[in-house]
Simulated assay, not measured.
Amino acid sequence: MSTYQMVSRTNYRRCMSEGWDGVIPVCEVSFTFLESVGCGSPPPLTDGDIKYTIKSNYSHQERVEFMCQSYYTMEGGPHRTCINGEWTGQMRCLKPCIVNEDLYRQHNITITSSDSKFFTHDEIIEFRCARGVPVGAVAMRQRCNGGVILLPTCQ
């Protein structure tokens, strides 16, 4: 609901025999009203959270900072701002790729860079054959894409 205020000098018109006299009154949204509209708690972020203590009410133009869980990568953000009773700002947390020892054994591969089983979104992982040679069309160098990674196979 918006509040309006009169911005013209006259706030009335008279009906005369020749028609209406005077200037058409003009109204606009009251900015003092807009500045006082706050927001409730910001919407939750899947696989993330607010960096500091959450409140139940926020003032107009107040902002909050979000962060993603460990190994997740933030796309967009990290801030949402309360504007006229609505939260603005878009972000999401992109999933990491997880490769466990069973998958390494199934594909007969290891990684060359580290012993980690967690890889962040957009991270490039270089594999090598544990023994044998690569087979199939999947390259030995792959990029993690939002929790999905193609694994090469060796025989």
Rank of each mutant, 00 (worst) to 15 (best):
R63H: 01
K55R: 15
I83G: 02
P25D: 08
F33W: 10
E101I: 11
T110Y: 05
R14N: 09
N100D: 15
T110V: 14
L103F: 13
S70P: 00
S41D: 00
P42M: 08
W87E: 13
D102Y: 06
F31A: 08
K117P: 05
S59W: 12
L103W: 07
Y52G: 03
F31Q: 11
L45V: 01
G19D: 06
Q61T: 07
C82P: 02
S41M: 04
K55V: 03
S59H: 12
Q106R: 11
T81H: 07
N84V: 06
M91H: 01
S17N: 06
S30Y: 02
T120W: 06
V23Y: 12
Q90H: 13
E35W: 10
T46Q: 13
S114D: 14
K51M: 02
F31T: 06
E35M: 12
Y72N: 03
V64C: 01
T88G: 09
I50S: 01
P43N: 04
F31K: 12
E65S: 05
M91L: 15
D115F: 11
G77Q: 04
D47G: 01
N57H: 07
C39Y: 13
Y12M: 15
P42L: 03
T46K: 14
T46M: 13
C68D: 13
E75A: 01
R13C: 01
S116Q: 11
E18A: 12
Y52I: 06
E75M: 03
T120H: 12
W87V: 08
T46F: 14
N84Y: 09
D102C: 11
D21G: 10
M74F: 04
